[in-house]
């Protein structure tokens, strides 16, 4: 009965309800995203070798350093431990060519964290995906460096991505049949040219499914995104197979997999309602297909996601769930 006296009210915590919690937190979400990216990273290292490792380390360290610097400058609590800067760094690295010069990676890190996130007030307030802001920024500012793709296995040589090869051929008046298309097997495994993290469709799919299984991402965005892209590219292919490649090629090539599973599912920059997520995914798919098929760039995933990021507030506004009991 002595235990009764151990209770001193001043040591009791008082808060608003609820008094228990599911235990999920931001850190664990971000950690899981990093875990899910590991297969694709390993394939990237295997295909592109040491230069890919260099890009990854630079990007992650760069992002962390910029985050730390911004926290200091803006007089904010350290947010290094929430892992979000690491996720941004990893995604940024995966969106760069493996042979990127060091300064390109660092500029990317500064744009991603500084311009894309910190000045909006940090995690949770940025309207655009930081890694994609950096990628598009670099693509437009340094087009040469951003499209110098190493050819897997041959360190010194550079060439085009599978999608780039198709676009170039078609724009020169040739047909798809004239192009030496990458095989589906190559696309799945990743032995093709491209940004170092986007090449292996299989590894990315694996990671995405794992996130889905863990309940960290919801199915609406990736499925709607991929299905819409397949649908539109499929129609184009059925109508004119001479100038448009098959939807399967579109599915496994370029950034669609990493975009649909990892970038378009970034919680901060996508709608909060499930209906909204569906619209978001469809919008991404339409824009990706349109840019890939008819646009000037061979690849449209980054632009599509950024554009849809901009529509997120509007989507959220018009897809609010129905209040319980409302007719």
């Amino acid at each position: 009965m002595d235990d009764k006296s151990t209770i001193t009210p001043r040591d009791l915590i008082v808060s608003a309800s609820p008094h228990i919690h599911s235990g999920q937190d931001v850190r664990s979400i971000m950690r899981h995203v990093v875990y899910a990216l590991i297969p694709a990273l390993l394939i990237g290292f295997w295909v592109f070798g040491l230069s890919a490792v260099k890009v990854l380390v630079l990007a992650v360290v760069g992002c962390l350093a910029v985050e730390w610097g911004c926290n200091k400058l803006l007089n904010r609590e350290s947010s290094l431990l929430d892992f979000s800067a690491i996720v941004t760094g990893v995604l940024l690295a995966m969106n760069l060519p493996s042979g990127s010069p060091w300064w390109l990676v660092l500029v990317g890190a500064i744009v991603a964290i500084g311009l894309g996130k910190a000045i909006y007030g940090g995690l949770g307030y940025n309207p655009f995906n930081p890694a994609l802001v950096a990628r598009v920024f670099l693509l437009i500012s340094f087009p040469v460096q951003m499209t110098t793709w190493s050819i897997p296995g041959v360190d010194a040589e550079t060439g085009a991505t599978p999608l780039g090869a198709v676009k170039e051929a078609v724009s020169l008046g040739k047909t798809v049949m004239d192009v030496d298309l990458a095989t589906t097997k190559d696309l799945l495994i990743g032995t093709v040219g491209g940004s170092f993290g986007e090449v292996s469709a299989l590894a990315l799919l694996l990671g995405g499914l794992w996130l889905l299984y863990k309940g960290i991402i919801k199915w609406q965005i990736p499925i709607a995104f991929i299905a819409t892209t397949l649908f539109i590219t499929g129609i184009a292919w059925l109508i004119d197979p001479a100038h448009y490649v098959s939807p399967v090629f579109h599915l496994f090539s370029g950034g669609l997999m990493i975009g649909a599973w990892f970038m378009a599912t970034d919680m901060v920059t996508t709608p909060v309602t499930q209906k909204g997520m569906l619209f978001f995914g469809i919008g991404c798919g339409v824009l990706t297909a349109v840019i890939r098929l008819w646009g000037g760039y061979p690849e449209g995933v980054s632009f599509a996601i950024l554009l849809m990021n901009a529509t997120t507030p509007l989507i959220d506004r018009y897809t609010k769930p129905k209040v319980f009991g409302e007719a």
Binding site: P9, R10, D11, L12, I13, V14, S15, A16
Partner: peptide, 9 residues
């Protein structure tokens, strides 16, 4: 000033 409990919120 004394506190009567630990506030969390």
């Amino acid at each position: 000033a004394a506190k009567k409990y630990r506030y969390n919120g």
